[in-house]
Design a protein around this nucleic acid. Sequence first.
DNA 1: CCTCTATGGCGAA
DNA 2: TCGCCCTAGAGGC
Length: 246
Amino acid sequence: MTVSSPQGRFVDGAAGVDGRVFKRASAWGKHLFHEYAGGPIVHVHLGLYGTFTEWAVPPQQPPPPPVGQVRMRMVGAEYGTDLRGPTICEVIDEAQVADVVAKLGPDPLRRDADPVPAWARISKSRRPIGALLMDQAVIAGIGNVYRNELLYRHHIDPYRPGLMVSADEFDAMWTDLVALMQVGLRRGKIIVVRPEHDLGAPSYAPGRPRTYVYRRAGDPCRVCGTTIRTAELEGRNVFWCPQCQT
DNA sequence: CCTCTATGGCGAA
DNA sequence: TCGCCCTAGAGGC
């Protein structure tokens, strides 16, 4: 694998893996790990702006010139990819990967995900469930969209303290979350609106409803018509239906 | 087409 | 607590 940093902010890191055999990619929550033969691992977190774009390597021609701020460029035999705008892009070792993962809760997309520690923390906490679900140390991988939509689907007010959430409610949310995130992974987009609430067309169709509450402040609830509310909770916008969620 | 906003998290202050 | 990252989708016109 040829690895470089056209932008210049990952030059040393790129040199640490350039020319090595790319072994595998794995993820835990929002953290991505690229393992290379010989040990070095590229740790990436996309954050708010980060994005990968892929392109086919032109046969017998040089790769296309980078467009914009390309932090990391990877070029293989057939395909190349450009990484722009990540919060984290660094080369680390196995022990450091363990340190990163040790700070994360279970990832619903992993086969080995164990919800028990997440429930242990939630059931003992007075913090709002809307904050706990966003805490990567409680559950890894949930973002603002899934947080808001999950609480709507389970009729739970985001400000309800974690210790006021019942075991049955948590179990139902976890099961639902695993299914929703698997659908999202498979489809490459977040799909959370049930067909019966689509008002005519499925939510995954272009231009159709995508969410129940996320970014719908001031609009009517798709189920009861009550105006969707929004507020800031620990620095992030929460959205909820004051009628459906208690 | 143009403008606004944010599917996060780090590090400086 | 604030600025940064500096992309790209959503929404308005």
